[in-house]
Simulated scan of single mutants.
Amino acid sequence: MKFIAFSDTHDSIAAIDDLISEIKNEKVDFFVHAGDVISPFALKRFSEIEKLYIAFGNNDGDRNKLTEIALGMGWVAGEVVFAEDIAVYHGTNPDLLKILEKKCNIVVTGHTHEARVVRDGSTLVINPGESCGYLTGKRSYAIYEDGEVNIMEF
């Protein structure tokens, strides 16, 4: 299985466009966005991506409109979304995050803007960092393939 994870795009159209240019030709099973798209106009920028799972973040605005766009594109969106045995959750509630880490083999999270990959027993937690680059000055995403994770800067 191969997927690309990203998070915290925060309405940065330039960063979203650069991200899509980086990843659109990757041969993957699906993509995940771990929250903080923010607005409908930013979400629409991902229209080139066919199979996308989107977890809402703490800064996402009109969730009804975001959901409407996601459904119209054939994507999945919600507070916590599941893609196979992967939970995608923004990470704002540490207790919920701990529960997901106990129940799922892979958890993709965001929120902290810090890229990290943690293996704890049979669980893999991936935070792809921030795609917007606002807090860390680094724009990143993660590529997962058959148990290996690479954090990529762009």
Results as ranks from 00 to 15, higher is better:
A34H: 02
A34I: 00
G35W: 00
D36L: 02
I38N: 07
I38E: 11
S39D: 12
S39V: 12
F41Y: 15
F41W: 10
L43E: 11
L43I: 03
K44T: 09
K44S: 12
K44F: 07
R45D: 13
S47Y: 14
I49A: 10
I49F: 08
E50N: 13
E50G: 11
E50P: 06
K51Q: 11
K51L: 09
Y53G: 00
Y53L: 03
I54D: 02
I54N: 10
A55L: 01
G57D: 00
G57S: 12
N59P: 00
N59W: 12
N59Y: 09
N59E: 08
D60L: 03
D60C: 01
D60R: 14
G61K: 11
G61S: 11
G61M: 07
R63G: 04
N64G: 13
N64D: 15
N64C: 08
K65Y: 14
T67A: 14
T67K: 15
T67V: 00
E68D: 05
E68C: 01
E68G: 03
I69T: 03
I69V: 06
A70G: 05
A70D: 01
L71I: 09
L71P: 04
G72L: 12
G72P: 02
G72N: 15
G72S: 15
M73W: 09
M73D: 01
W75H: 07
V76P: 09
A77G: 05
A77N: 07
G78N: 06
G78M: 01
V80S: 08
V80W: 03
V81L: 06
F82A: 04
F82K: 13
F82N: 07
A83F: 08
A83L: 04
A83M: 05
E84V: 07
E84L: 08
D85R: 15
I86M: 03
A87E: 04
A87L: 02
A87I: 00
V88L: 03
V88T: 04
Y89W: 04
Y89Q: 01
Y89M: 03
H90W: 00
G91S: 10
G91P: 03
G91T: 03
G91R: 08
G91V: 00
T92S: 13
T92C: 09
T92E: 14
N93Q: 13
D95V: 13
D95K: 14
D95A: 13
L96E: 15
L96W: 03
L97A: 14
L97T: 07
K98N: 10
K98H: 05
K98G: 05
